[in-house]
Amino acid sequence: MRTMGIRNRPRSERRRQSTVCQPLLTLVGGTLAVMAVMAAMATPAFAQAGVDPADVPDLTGVWDGGFRARPVNGPNMPWVPGENFPVLNERGLAHQAVFDEAIAPKYDCVPSASPALQYDPYMMEVTQWPDRVLVRYEKDDQIRTFWLDGRETPSNDFTVQGFSSGRYEDGALLVETTKFTFDVAGFDDYNGIPSSQQKKVTERYWREGEELRMTLTVEDPMFLREPVSYTTRWLPGPEGYKLQAYDCDPFEAGHPRKFLVPTYR
């Protein structure tokens, strides 16, 4: 017996079935949509498994790392001779001896990176998402992503800011960054100390009252004999402050070089 498909049925019957089917389809579709939303809402708030929300510090906001928070900034801060100034191995000393300020990449608008970027006297904005923390720096318009979901970067993916993995622990955010590109002046702005692809930067962020505090440790066995650390702070930024665009000007970045007596000709 040949079954009649809906198109072969009388129009009155097709109309009756359409009147029944469409609302039914709408009800089913709506129910599925509601179930999907409820499922999404029921997923863990953080990508990091097992994290207790009480252990997550509130780091979100605009933070002032300028002279209000750190009155002293210069060649001896945050790396203080006799206190935490890095001890260079022979390779590091040799590089430092032949370093010429004019070749520092910043004079060509290459962005600042860890561990110098965090101590630059500018504003910083932190946004905490479930699977990542985004940190935007006013200096050089840089953005760093601290991945909280355990992902890994390809073995050959080296960048200026490196690759950062983070986790919450005991009321603090711990971040480990590797995969930095080589930088002839990658340690700080003043001392002509290079940093290599072996550089590893570990940061711990936490709140102390209204302050955001951080301890940073740098390891670079290519140039440093041992890890070195500094601790610093940020204060809350002005109410309603929006980070300004830095827009490094290539001409003005290199402008001071004409006033330098070059080491090499």
């Binding site: 210069g74 520092a104 101590y119 630059d120 001071p256 330098l260």
Partner: peptide
């Protein structure tokens, strides 16, 4: 001009 960007001494 220092402001943690560069040392002024070389220039």
């Amino acid at each position: 001009s220092v402001g943690a960007h560069h040392a002024s001494g070389p220039f």
